[in-house]
């Protein structure tokens, strides 16, 4: 049962360096209206779970906000100092590039999720580039704010540990998939993961409504654009999916799970 967290103040004025021009004023007006909803997102984020109302107020008061358009960049690989981010709305990809420029999507961040937590704790450079997949809006805690949160709210450190451990487990699982599974199986898993993350039940199946290109699907699966297209075409023939431009409709969730889990296709 989430506690009432109504009296959330507007996010603090660390809109530093961008004095009160007209656009900032407009943003402030929006912030007052939305302060309450943010409180809910902050409260529901596992990183801030179990905090008292006063602590939650401190958390929001130390944050600044950032809004980006689609394709906007929150930070780039190698940048520093690192800030902690909590995505309020939108979708963000965390990408890493290899030396020869090939990109891999390490993670897809959805609304309500924190990102760059490890970098913010470590104080090192960002290991990934965070790019908005669609218009995105985030709360940001800079280094001093992160330190203050850790010092003043013990549960934040504990929660951070739990969040990071979960991330490690997810990465271990993905590593196992990459090491042992066929590409088709991995791609099926990627699609199912995306469906869980952003899927919507519609007539005729489950729609993954994310502006992801096939190139990006390949980057998430650890394969090539060519292989993704070939798999999707094959699955379209089998009636498992319908793949449009930056849109995938899973027509047979059962069929796709069968591929992902390598189940015997009984009942098909």
């Amino acid at each position: 049962m989430p506690m009432a967290f109504k009296s959330c103040p507007p996010v603090a004025a660390s809109l530093a360096g961008s004095g009160g021009d007209a656009t900032e004023v407009a943003q402030w007006a929006q912030m007052d209206l939305r302060g309450e909803a943010w409180g809910e997102v902050v409260e529901r984020c596992p990183l801030f779970g179990g905090l008292t109302e006063d602590e939650l107020r401190l958390v929001t008061s130390l944050a600044r906000e950032r809004r980006l358009r689609r394709k906007g960049v929150f930070f780039r690989e190698g940048d520093k100092p690192c800030a902690l981010h909590l995505l309020l709305t939108g979708e963000v990809t965390l990408k890493q590039a290899s030396v020869d420029g090939q990109e891999v999507i390490v993670r897809l961040v959805g609304a309500g999720e924190a990102f760059a937590l490890a970098s913010a704790l470590e104080g090192a450079t960002y290991p990934v580039t965070a790019e908005a997949l669609r218009a995105s809006h985030a709360l940001v805690w800079d280094q001093p704010a992160v330190q203050e949160l850790l010092n003043r709210i013990p549960s934040v450190s504990r929660n951070a540990l739990a969040v990071l451990l979960r991330r490690i487990r997810e990465l271990e699982q993905r590593f196992r998939e990459v090491a042992t599974e066929r590409v088709a199986q991995r791609l099926a898993r990627t699609l199912l993961r995306l469906a869980r993350h952003a899927g919507r039940k519609v007539e005729g199946g489950v729609l993954i409504d994310l502006p992801l290109s096939r190139e990006e699907l390949a980057q998430m699966t650890g394969t090539t654009l060519f292989t993704v297209s070939r798999c999707l075409a094959e699955w379209e023939r089998q009636g498992l999916v319908e793949a449009g431009r930056e849109k995938v409709l899973i027509r047979s969730t059962h069929g796709l799970v069968t591929v992902a889990e390598d189940l015997p296709s009984r009942g098909e």
Binding site: T253, H254, V257, R266, G267
Partner: peptide
Amino acid sequence: GMACVGCTMASFDTLAEVAAT
């Protein structure tokens, strides 16, 4: 013999769809 319990797509598939599958 339905692999539904614990399936990741259980929140999407309806009873009618499962029966048909």
